[in-house]
Design a protein around this nucleic acid. Structure first.
Lengths: 377, 377
DNA sequence: TTGAAAGCGCTAACAG
DNA sequence: CTGTTAGCGCTTTCAA
């Protein structure tokens, strides 16, 4: 009971290389401002200023300091700097699912914008759980100066609350009083509907994603409106999880729907799954059904048939979010009224075509042949 | 010149919400151990112990402390904790290219293992540059307790040097004296060669990836050895950047190679690009050429034809690396002699088949038809 | 332009 | 079992 094993092994400081108090100061340890101060015959505060406030120190002194710092291999300790100031130079990127390819380019964009501004990026994966998300925000992220929330699964009010704690930017979702960056999916959907209309389709089925997704509601609403204006019938199927598997399930459900010649899916993952599922069921894309996706993720161009999709500016979303956040941190006023809306564009590939026959109202889907064996191992 | 604008805007502390010295202590600020100590009538050190050393404090006292901490909404400040101890509870994952899909599952595995062990993951993208990598290690990562190096572009000696500074695990590469986790690509290549041999191919072309890649050398060597044993001719083409574009270039070069019926590519990205490039040039896969990839990345199953590939245990690589690192941090002896080798498996899909004709030695590739227009917008 | 000194929040010796 | 005290490395008043 006296000196029993400590609960967490790592709490036993390795006596060899951990910092100890009151002992050795110089030797192999990384130098501090005090070492430089002593070496230069100035006060530590002067050294500090030389780095964080150049110009508030005589040029020659500053130079001398910088030189010896260089010589000693001095690196300012970010932790020590952060403690009194709160400036950790870190921002957090919170994602609902790191492995969702829609985030790849977002991550890259955010990362490069962060690096550019001198920030390090902390990545948190909340695995599609609002609970994990809340806990990430509360526990592991207090060290970040600001947060980019990509694909949050929390409620608007929870987000608003969190945004009060520290600077925040929300991606692809509108939350009152919280700055956000969205892609113009309404216009994208409109373009998709026009495209299908021009090909001769008379009705469009929306294969829905998660109901908790702001973008999903947005896209469905946009399709309905476009349908009204363009005189196209619209209907909605779902919701489905926004994954390949979800798409395969949707394919099965689609067979029950008469007169389906054109589908717009919530996102590319769903669309690609849908195409595969349909192929397995003996339905040809685009001959029998046209399919449009959303986002233009990695793989949308090399799946078969290559996917027609509404391309989101994924990379730009990432950079814009981080730039916004960094601006906020620099004291810029928070742009809270309106979201920044980034333009999208329709990329037409091979998964859309004119409907097979426009003369008869008969369902194309009922014409299916016998199911074909899945082609993969 | 006197009070001119400071270089970085964010260095102007926002007087409203930054920490100030000597002023207000309580009010809306987040509580510290001192607030709890005062409230409970104990010393701050007792509060500290109650959290970091439960058991070294009387049960009731500890309970009382935990209760008021709860009531006050206390959260221990990780920065303040880290400063004297060096334990930041962060580990760094350094990748050569975040957007390379081969890392998706690795990231996910690493992230979940880190979370499980109570660590936060810092992600650094070095954009295929050894220089950026070195600088990331030096500058932005001193706050991490340990590092997982995935796809390093640095020299062995640079890695060894960095590994002396702090605990490190290297992925998919062997570096003397540094613990590493690799997938068994030698056996994977052997399996691929056997597969192609069984199909009736008599020679195999290796489409090489970056020369700086340890895995590339490994794979090529394994193919040569397998070729000797299985009596298959082998040749090497490249190097190419391990991207879709690289594959497309490789496709062009491949046309100059007589008698090519089977290709193994350094990785799936290259393989998929190759297939697309060949299709554009009018060469059919697998009818005219069989193609095998490496890794089994996202998309390998839905590209067309679906890719036969040597599947790496990507997720497991990520978790294993982090678990290893965490063990090191906990004081486990560094396993330096031998790398941990994770098993791979060959996934046969549609991109491999028997060669069209075995009777004639004539090149299949020279039989190509006129180039076909690219199908995408 | 610079130095002295206090403090950021927490941890760890060292008594008691 | 708990309080006292010093200290992590850096920043920022305040005075000189």
């Amino acid at each position: 009971m006296t000196t029993g094993p400590l609960p967490r092994a790592r709490q036993v400081p390795d006596p060899a290389d951990r910092i100890r108090y009151g002992e050795e100061g110089r030797s192999g340890a990384t130098p501090t401002i005090y070492d430089i101060a002593r070496e230069c015959g100035v006060a530590a505060s002067t050294v500090s200023r030389a780095f964080s406030r150049p110009g508030r120190v005589k040029a020659e002194t500053a130079q001398r300091i910088r030189d010896t710092a260089e010589r000693l291999g001095y690196r300012t300790n970010p932790l020590a700097r952060a403690l009194p100031t709160g400036r950790t130079s870190m921002i957090g990127l919170v994602l609902s699912d790191i492995t969702n390819p829609v985030y790849f380019e977002v991550i890259r964009g955010a990362q490069s914008a962060a690096a550019e501004a001198g920030f390090t990026m902390l990545l948190a994966d909340t695995q599609e759980s609002g609970e994990l998300e809340r806990s990430a925000l509360e526990h592991s992220l207090p060290v970040v100066e600001g947060i980019v929330l990509g694909g949050s699964r929390m409620s608007d009010s929870a987000i608003r609350m969190a945004a009060k704690q520290r600077p925040m930017v929300v991606l692809n979702r509108l939350v009152a009083d919280v700055p956000s960056i969205v892609s113009d999916s309404a216009r994208g959907m409109r373009r998709a509907a026009e495209h299908l209309g021009e090909l001769g389709h008379e009705s469009i089925t929306y294969v829905a994603g998660p109901e908790a997704s702001w973008a999903d509601g947005m896209r469905w609403r946009a399709l309905r409106e476009a349908g009204t204006e363009l005189e196209l019938k619209t209907r909605r199927l779902g919701p489905y999880p926004p994954t390949l598997k979800g798409g395969i399930r949707a394919a099965e459900d689609l067979l029950g729907q008469p007169n389906t010649t054109a589908v717009v899916a919530y996102n590319d993952l769903l669309a690609i799954g849908l195409v595969r599922g349909l192929a397995r069921l003996g339905v040809q894309v685009p001959e029998q059904v046209s399919v449009v996706g959303f986002d233009n993720i990695f793989g949308a161009d090399f799946c078969s048939p290559a996917l027609t999709t509404v391309a989101s500016p994924l990379r730009a979303l990432g950079t814009a979010a981080v730039r916004d956040l960094v601006a906020q941190l620099a004291g810029a006023p928070v742009r809270t009224g309106q979201a920044a809306v980034l333009p999208v564009r329709l990329v037409v590939r091979e998964s859309t075509a004119a409907p097979l026959t426009r003369r008869r109202g008969a369902s194309r889907l009922r014409r299916m042949t016998a199911p074909v064996p899945a082609g993969s191992a």
